[in-house]
Design a protein around this nucleic acid. Structure first.
Lengths: 146, 146
DNA sequence: TTGCCTGTAATGTGGTATATTACAGGCAGG
DNA sequence: CCTGCCTGTAATATACCACATTACAGGCAA
């Protein structure tokens, strides 16, 4: 299993908006071209990011733009915005443990808090990484390879 | 997306072995009965755990038993044993970023190390949680509700 | 008012998780 | 020795989900 590519698509999308945003009109087709996925996927992710208040969308000259500075947009923001992990949580628990069995009856209670702890740890780490970090790495790559 | 239930099945399975192991012969059918999944799934997970050196399997009186104490079996051990996350990593990266685009050309390099960091953080947390912790919670639940 | 752009629905498709059946091989215990 | 349960594993079915694709309605801008 893997976390949906909507997450990396979301980050990519924000990076392009930040990079081109000032000079060029950014549309879902431009974004789809850079990301290499269907424009409809982009529009859906765009919608998620807009709902989450990370971008604003207009059809005017500006097109799509960030509502915050890259320093204030974290991986966690994007991850939550695009619903990378559904309500059931990161871990898929087997659904029919046997209530007749002492273990089966209690395994959920015994494990849930621990799994939450693991998931929260991952999410906290995502809060530490920002779009600005990604932009910095991209800039340094661009400087290297021209 | 979610991490395969093979992981929680694996932990459940180990818990049952630890709980019944001394008194009763534990077979894949017994385990499947407690876990509520098909015996073949159990046998596959059993195979994974055996390869990882967490359990030993015999057809004798003892049936299946742990090779380590519960204190020395971590969530991470089980997670790795059952291949919860495939080689591509926890995050599914979109596969065709456009090399013509300065962002598309560098997004992978810019994000990969950060995503690895997040995944590693999760895995490190899993190393902190042992089968003994789960058994303790189950025991305390059993004490409560009889 | 014309044209691009977004929003969204409907449908297709491939991949993956789990279930299920079937059967070969092996060790255990009588 | 041989019978029977148990493991290991392959083959197949099914259901679900991610992503692709087409289509079209509505809106804002020039």
């Amino acid at each position: 299993m893997q976390i949906s590519s909507k997450f990396t698509i979301g980050v990519h999308l924000l990076a392009v908006i930040e990079y081109l945003g000032e000079d060029e009109k950014v549309t879902s087709n431009v974004l789809a071209g850079s990301i290499g996925v269907n424009p409809v996927i982009v529009r859906n992710v765009m919608g998620n990011l807009k709902e989450a208040g990370l971008i604003s969308i207009s059809q005017g000259k500006s097109g799509i733009s960030l509502t915050k500075t890259p320093e204030r947009i974290t991986f966690y923001d994007v991850y939550k915005a695009v619903d990378s992990v559904n309500d059931g949580g990161l871990f898929h628990f087997h659904e029919n443990p046997n209530p007749e069995c002492p273990i089966g009856r209690n395994i959920h209670k015994a494990m849930d808090s621990k799994l939450d702890r693991v998931q929260k740890c991952m999410e906290d780490e995502m809060k530490q990484i920002t779009l600005a970090d990604v932009m910095a790495d991209i800039q340094s790559e661009l400087k290297k390879s021209g």
